[in-house]
Nucleic acid binder design. Structure first.
Lengths: 217, 217
DNA sequence: GTCTATAAAGAGATAGAC
DNA sequence: GTCTATCTCTTTATAGAC
């Protein structure tokens, strides 16, 4: 099999390095992960790492940029396929969760270990994140203009509430846990769709249980 | 002023130490915070720390136990004052958020740096957290039995969704930020009360805007 | 209760052979 | 592309004077 450059495949050592690093960074934290552990996990001596990377910090930077760019592209693509404004929100929520939880190590690292990057690089990643968040806010604004969701909360606050509901999941979700990925996506989507509905109004179109078609395992 | 033993006052050096440590642990992470920085923040030499603590790890342990015990007591007290089942949920949400965001450093440390404790101590703190979560689940179960909230999601999943919505706030909230503490509490409460309502039903009693009386600054 | 001095271990990274 | 060997710096923690 040959690398197609499209995903975090681990064909070459440089990619494997990012994958293994993200795993350790999530489990032990960036600061507490040593280059020696990294080397051991890859089955090489620590000096050998430096043939594939410039520094430990570069690994973190690459993981952050890579994961945010990937989720941004994937989510925009799925949202573009949506057939109506409410479905755009459903597409955003489900795709965000699916990508974050399937590329768990990298996204948890990006979301939680960002502070260990120096100022300039951290800002760069934060800009990418800001641009990504704007996708959600655009969807929400459109829904408010069409009066399809509540208007008593600002799009800023709605988007904060939604990202809260989505992102804390990385701290307890585990593939072998009590809830499958599909279960988690389903109940969080249902909770969010109820949370954004206009107060005093029945749900838009029975939003709770009419999630998008589920992916089979 | 004399210590009353009731709060994280900083009358003595041992308490100041916990407060300063929690602040650094949240800002830089436990692993990346050095005992020298800790000492510098307290205005002493690093050797002097060891008169007040046994180890850096003990600080983390004390912060975790202290913060979870405090929020547990405070939230149970406020919930007990509630006048009806729905008000119990409102009391839980508002008190949880208020305590977490006002004792921001300690709670963020407890929630995010717990993994750096050795197995036995980590388990001990997790047991305390489990017991605290049960408060929320009891409230939700009671509400479901009385058919005052939706019954299509389990109490486990409702409580996961609610804690998601509440806890991720520690990663973006800042006292001087765009939203005041009261604003944050208000819109997250409103989002959560909408999220738990029975699908296809108007909100229980116009829950969105009838938050509990707000504290004045 | 705080200090100076230092021990003992571990960190990220490099040099140069193979 | 990986190795052995090592440099240099930093880490947590202790000993013992004041």
């Amino acid at each position: 099999m040959v690398s197609n450059g499209a995903g975090p495949d681990n064909a070459n050592t440089a990619d494997r390095l990012l994958t293994v690093a993200a795993h350790l960074f999530r489990e032990k934290g960036y600061a507490a992960t040593t280059t020696r552990e990294l080397a051991a996990a890859l089955g090489v001596k620590s000096a050998s790492l430096y043939y594939h990377m410039r520094s430990k910090e570069d690994l973190l930077y690459d993981i952050c940029v890579d994961s945010i760019q990937r989720i941004d592209a994937e989510v925009r693509a799925k949202v573009a396929e949506a057939t109506d404004p409410l479905d755009e929100l459903r597409a955003f929520v489900t795709t965000h969760l699916r990508v974050v939880l399937m590329d768990h190590d990298r996204h948890a690292t990006m979301l939680l270990e960002l502070r260990f990057l120096p100022e300039d690089r951290r800002r760069e990643v934060l800009e990418l994140r800001k641009s990504y968040v704007r996708v959600a806010r655009q969807i929400l604004q459109n829904l408010q203009e069409k009066e399809l969701i509540r208007r008593d909360l600002t799009t800023t606050n709605l988007s904060l509430a939604i990202f809260n509901t989505l992102n804390w999941t990385i701290l307890w979700y585990h593939p072998d846990g009590a809830s499958s990925l599909d279960d988690v996506i389903e109940f969080l989507l249902s909770f969010i769709m109820a949370g954004v509905q206009t107060p005093g109004t029945p749900m838009p179109d029975g939003a709770a249980m009419t999630a998008r078609p589920r992916r089979r395992k």
